[in-house]
């Protein structure tokens, strides 16, 4: 993989992010190229979601800059940004009950005039494709309130796909998914990577991230201080026993499965 040969799609340097003047994570720098998957990992409270929010232009960083293909993300109009970057939050809070199809259609908003309800052929095709990819097509006329947590999660991912972005940011997209749909999501993300998308996601499962990530940003949270990157590197490098002990305080044995893939087995808390 020649990460440096590709132009940086998303680039953060010297970020401090937090809420109300209180820093949650600091000194974060990262580079994401087209066709790469970057996983942000770390213990609870390490600021993974906050960091993704900052990358998604939902939260202004206290320090540092974030650039999308060379331009500061805060200098872009919101619609331009949304055409290039989609964000899947941890949860959706619909005030009004929509059907899955109505929700996914909203993903086309950045491609339409802001007042317009009309959908072009492109719009309809993107919406159908996004629903087929996420296996939500058969749910298209169901109300969001009638969906299970996993179905809802897939519908929200379909919205992000319908945006046809160059970069996707997902905050714990596997949280509500059962085993099978987790694997299906992994396939979707790999397929998108194959099509040149840059993807950032927060995941907790070590084995999932080891299989999916090109790069892992591991955040370490010292007591009472903002977290800092402990490592930014390839999975086998980031997920070393020493790193995992330091960041999570957990002993992990690493074995190799039949296909030669490393398998991570947390064995005991080291404290």
């Amino acid at each position: 993989m020649s990460e440096t040969a590709l132009p940086a799609l998303l680039e953060a340097s010297g970020l401090t992010v937090g809420w109300g003047g209180k820093a949650v994570a600091e000194q974060v720098s990262l580079q994401l190229s087209a066709g790469q998957i970057l996983v942000i990992a770390g213990p609870n409270g390490a600021g993974k979601s906050t960091l993704v929010k900052a990358l998604a232009r939902q939260l202004k960083p206290a320090k540092g800059t974030i650039k999308l293909a060379g331009s500061d993300i805060w200098s872009l109009p919101p619609r331009d940004f949304a055409r290039k970057v989609s964000y899947v939050p941890q949860s959706l809070e619909p005030g009004q009950d929509l059907t899955v199809r109505e929700l996914v259609a909203l993903g086309r908003n950045p491609h339409q005039p802001w007042w317009s309800w009309g959908a072009s052929a492109d719009d309809r095709q993107a919406v159908t494709e996004a629903m087929e990819k996420t296996a939500t097509w058969q749910l298209r006329d169901k109300y969001l309130s009638s969906l299970s947590g996993g179905e809802r999660q897939r519908a929200v991912i379909a919205v992000a796909l319908a945006q046809k972005p160059r970069c996707m940011l997902l905050d714990e997209p596997t949280a509500h998914l059962d085993f099978r749909h987790q694997l299906e999501l992994v396939d979707i993300l790999r397929d998108l990577r194959g099509h040149g998308l840059g993807i950032v996601l927060v995941v907790h499962d070590l084995n999932l991230m080891a299989r999916l990530a090109d790069l892992i940003l591991l955040l370490a949270k010292p007591d009472d201080r903002p977290s800092r990157p402990a490592c930014l590197g390839r999975p086998e490098q980031a997920l070393s026993q020493a790193n995992l002990r330091r960041v999570y305080g957990v002993e992990v044995s690493i074995v190799t499965d039949a296909a030669g893939q490393p398998v991570y087995l947390p064995t005991s808390s080291s404290q």
């Binding site: 109009p77 809070e93 909203l106 993903g107 908003n109 950045p110």
Partner: peptide, 23 residues
Amino acid sequence: LVLSKPLRLLSVGVQSAAALGLD
């Protein structure tokens, strides 16, 4: 009436509306 589309975007939440390009 003109602002009915932004109104729908806001109905899925401020965060999602912003992520979908709404100011």
